[in-house]
Design a protein around this nucleic acid. Structure first.
Lengths: 247, 247
DNA sequence: CGGTAGGTTGATTCCCATCAATCGGAGTGG
DNA sequence: CCACTCCGATTGATGGGAATCAACCTACCG
């Protein structure tokens, strides 16, 4: 049984409109007035839900637009030369998918649902046209892209200098922050991805992830049962993130 | 004597205008007609040249706008908690600096000139206002940001799964590509950054960079004299980039 | 009931960081 | 002009952290 990463407070129904969507305070049109929001709503295309393992789009596919996650979660995998790809992003509700496909007019990775997932599709040409008249929408779009660049940058730092324990600590605390932002419990959640996914994402072998997780449990930092995670000592995890800079 | 990374074909003089700038085919306003180009030119502020080691802006400084490198080169260093920062970007002529500062209205890293460097400053509010009327400019801005996201993504892959030799091979071939794009010799150039910088950027110790470089020279892949680099066997380097995926 | 995907645990190997010493060149100042 | 200094680069020795290889376990599913 696939665990759901979050409790669905938002209906996955395709009938949903931006005006009533539970993510409207975090989504692209977050600063729009009611009237503009309605206009925005008309350019959004609701998709049928994706089943677990199903692809939203594949690497190299022609870029058509960006997507916002409504319920569920996804991963982006990029393959290059070698056999198995690198996992570069996890996407949670209200987050934007596909912005990195604009430049070359093709998606740079395959995006796969980790569970039953619903998304909104926003064709870029119509978004661009609408943003011409709505400065706040334009600003929000810039900010979203800028934010993703900043996130990637943090990831760069993580991958180049952190130990396995630090990576896991950072991974959990960041997930925690994202859940908090979305109004869910930051200290108790379910992982929709496998340990292999996490390892791939963090640049670690599955075995290492498993071992570090065991150590965390022994130290009483987290409690794991199945894919249910409880952060018992978030402060200790936060301390761990930086720690051996002291050495 | 600081080596210059490129042969200056473009005048560093502050009198330069976009209309006559040698980078106009690679820069933001690349698709503008002459009239619009002139309008764009009026919002650009030319800065006095930066001396080697001088900062364009510091981490945390309030975001004012983006910069385009006209001559020279820079590095972005981001410090977080620990003492010495992580080098996240090198910037060459015609490349955009500071896009990642939009979201939080502050620059996420300190950007430092690696040599005498001139930049154009583009206040974001004026760029945004202008782009409202010029769809192609808006598109170009989206593409630039998208491109940087894609580049960061490639860097992620590099840092999480590649060996030291592959990292150096990738580093050199990418530099090579950037020089080619700019019309310079892709097989013979000068490095404006130190080995320590390169190591920091690639997540390697200086010693490792030095050792790999020595190995490359023994194998006849590159020739190094001072900071002058000659790629003798670019094909072999390209092969190296993927190689041990086969294992 | 077998098959498969995901997770755990142990033994071994190896790549690279770290520590340490040395060297060379550039800039400085007497 | 030469010593002095400092920064950057080089080379060697050592150790550690994580990958790899391998075996096994568990849960789920057709």
């Amino acid at each position: 049984m696939p665990f759901s990463m979050i409790h669905h407070r938002c209906s996955p129904s395709p009938e949903t409109h931006c005006q009533t969507c539970c993510h409207r305070s975090l989504c692209l049109p977050l600063s729009l007035g009611l009237e503009d929001l309605e206009r925005f709503d008309t350019i959004v295309r609701r998709r049928a839900p994706l089943a677990k393992g199903e692809a939203l789009f594949r690497q190299g596919a022609t870029f058509t637009g960006v997507y916002v996650v409504r319920t569920g979660s996804l991963k982006q995998v990029t393959t290059e030369g070698g056999v198995d790809g690198q996992l570069t992003h996890f996407y949670l509700p209200s987050e934007l998918v596909g912005l990195d496909g604009i430049d070359e007019n093709a998606y740079p990775g395959t995006v796969i649902a980790l569970q039953t997932t619903t998304v909104c599709e926003i064709p870029l040409d119509r978004l661009d046209a609408l943003s011409e008249r709505l400065p706040v929408l334009r600003t929000q779009l810039y900010r979203s892209m800028s934010k993703e660049m900043r996130e990637d940058l943090r990831m760069l730092r993580l991958l180049s200098h952190k130990t396995a324990e630090q990576r896991l600590a950072i991974f959990f605390t960041r997930l925690s922050d994202r859940f908090r932002r979305h109004g869910y419990s930051p200290y108790s959640f379910r992982l929709s991805m496998t340990l292999a996914d996490i390892g791939n994402y963090l640049g670690l072998a599955v075995e290492t992830v498993s071992r570090v997780l065991s150590r965390f449990q022994q130290q009483g930092l987290v409690a794991v049962s199945g894919r249910e995670i409880h952060l018992l000592a978030p402060d200790a995890l936060i301390r761990l993130r930086e720690e051996d800079d002291a050495c």
